[in-house]
Amino acid sequence: MSKLISEKTKEVFLGPLSKNNPITVQVLGICSALAVTSKLEPALVMGISVTIIVAFSNVIISLIRNTIPNRIRIIVQLVVVAALVTVVSEILKAYAYDVSVQLSVYIGLIITNCILMGRLEAFAMSNKPWESFVDGLGNGFGYAWILVAVAFVRELLGSGSLLGFKVIPQSVYDAGYMNNGLMMMPPMALIIVACIIWIHRARNKDLQEK
């Protein structure tokens, strides 16, 4: 089973978590990073859903990659993604109704997430199923942790809570502290993502342009 954890596979998994992160380096999937990060819980569920969908659509596309007619390959990829998203959304509606209500339109919008099309086109079309699966997981987690980091800051400073639980004690509010309403606005997500990119680049000199 040495193939399962070969150097290349390891790189495929770890790359997207940092040096090749879909959000902070490739700047993909920014739209949903703005939309679902005002609270931690939807950000978590969104991260998990995207990870599952990108991993499995990678596997499916990788399995049929040699049969796909080149001229309609984007359409084929889109159909696979759309079918998976619909199945996930139907299953959530049947077995996790509360979560599906909470995420409402966001689950459907996974179809338009650029990370999915990007990974299918750039990786799954030219790699074996196992590597593609690992690549999907890596990119999914790379996307999810940025979302969670942004949501953490926004919910903490914007609502004074985490996952819906109050974490800033009432005594702090009594002393004059106020929740920052700007944190709830979409522009703040961009600013926080920009700060993460800034720190990330400062620590990884090789990401900086010469």
Partner: peptide, 9 residues
Amino acid sequence: SHASETPGL
């Protein structure tokens, strides 16, 4: 309840 109002707002 609502279908798609802005979270947090």
